[in-house]
């Protein structure tokens, strides 16, 4: 038995949007190899699967276990291993998230399988899976050949064309066997202080602040603009490193990849590592006092100016336009 396996998360009965993207990428590989496309969803709660948002897979494994409620590598590796055991795929695909970045390489090492993470393109060449991934922050792309009976890849969110949901694949329950007992125990999970309550990863509009905002005391400018636009708040890495806001808001290579229709970068210079997180943003706006800032080479629209002057006038006008 062989197949192309896509593995995602299920929360409140729905897979994350990345699951449909995995299905899109996986379907192309399934067609090229003549192998079936198989899905596996790791349930994070007890909600029943909503059938209307599932991709066209031949079989769908649903993996439930109380150990999967909170993220832990041992349990996730064990869950994936049961799906791999049930389907013996030749290729397995995962979305590239903070969590998969931690557990998928542990799965790869445990199975001695080749893995490339954060892929932006996939193809086949003979027995090799060809995976393209940004390296060196994103200013260079590397093309890798992955070989072996099982080949693994994580895919950058927002890059692959999603599959359209289809009617009712056959759903099979799987249990998790043998969660490795290890020396790591969770004390608790601490959510980042909510910022306007809009989820960064799925937001339609994101307002991000960088080091140019000048300090935690000025962060209200970013919050204010975000709330006027009902946008999620994001930040660049130095902002999180300096503790102005939680790293849960970091956009970029080491933070989240975002996929909004509108991304507004305020006081952000446009380093490749930041741009890596907005490759799928539709329209990018930059507000920066330096006309030569790199961000203007990625942005669609730019304002050269001091954000402390630009943003309040912008917000006021937005509010006028809305009323």
């Amino acid at each position: 038995m062989a197949g192309i396996l896509i593995v995602g998360d299920l929360a409140a009965g729905r897979p994350g949007s990345e699951f449909l993207e995995l299905a899109g990428a996986g379907a192309a590989l399934a067609q090229a190899t003549g192998e079936p496309l198989i899905g596996a969803l790791i349930a994070r709660d007890n909600a029943a699967v909503r059938q209307d948002c599932l991709p066209p897979v031949q079989r769908l494994y649903l993996i439930r276990d109380s150990e999967l409620r909170h993220y832990g590598a041992a349990a996730f590796v064990a869950a994936a291993r049961s799906a791999l055991g049930a389907s013996s795929p030749s290729i397995a695909l995962f979305a590239h998230t903070l969590e998969t970045r931690d557990w998928v390489p542990q799965l790869a090492a445990a199975l001695d399988a080749g893995l490339v993470m954060d892929c932006v393109a996939l193809s086949l060449d003979g027995d090799a899976l060809i995976a393209t991934k940004p390296v060196y922050g994103g200013s260079v792309w590397g093309e890798f050949a992955i070989r072996g009976t099982l080949r693994l890849a994580t895919l950058r969110p927002g890059v692959f064309t999603p599959a359209t949901p289809s009617d009712k694949p056959e759903v099979m329950q799987l249990t998790v066997e043998h969660i490795a007992v290890n020396a790591v125990t969770m004390i608790d999970e601490v959510a980042a202080a909510a910022s306007g309550g809009v989820n960064l990863k799925n937001a339609k509009v994101v307002v991000s602040g960088g080091r140019g905002v000048g300090g935690a005391k000025n962060w209200h400018y970013i919050e204010g603009a975000a709330s006027a636009l009902r946008a999620a708040v994001g930040c660049s890495r130095p902002v999180a490193d300096s503790g102005w806001v939680s790293s849960a808001y970091t956009v970029g290579l080491s933070g989240s990849s975002v996929t909004p229709d509108l991304y507004i970068a305020v006081g952000i210079s446009g380093a490749v590592q930041h741009l890596a997180g907005i490759s799928a943003a539709r329209t990018v706006v930059a507000i920066n006092s330096d006309a030569d800032a790199e961000i203007f080479a990625r942005a669609d629209l730019g304002v050269v100016g001091d954000y402390k002057e630009v943003l309040p006038a912008f917000v006021k006008r937005i509010e006028q336009l809305k009323s």
Binding site: L98, A183, M186, I187, D188, E189, V190, K201, A248, S256
Partner: peptide, 12 residues
């Protein structure tokens, strides 16, 4: 670090 926050873990 995890999506949306962090976990406190005790590591032996």
């Amino acid at each position: 670090l995890i999506d949306g926050g962090h976990q406190r873990l005790r590591v032996q």
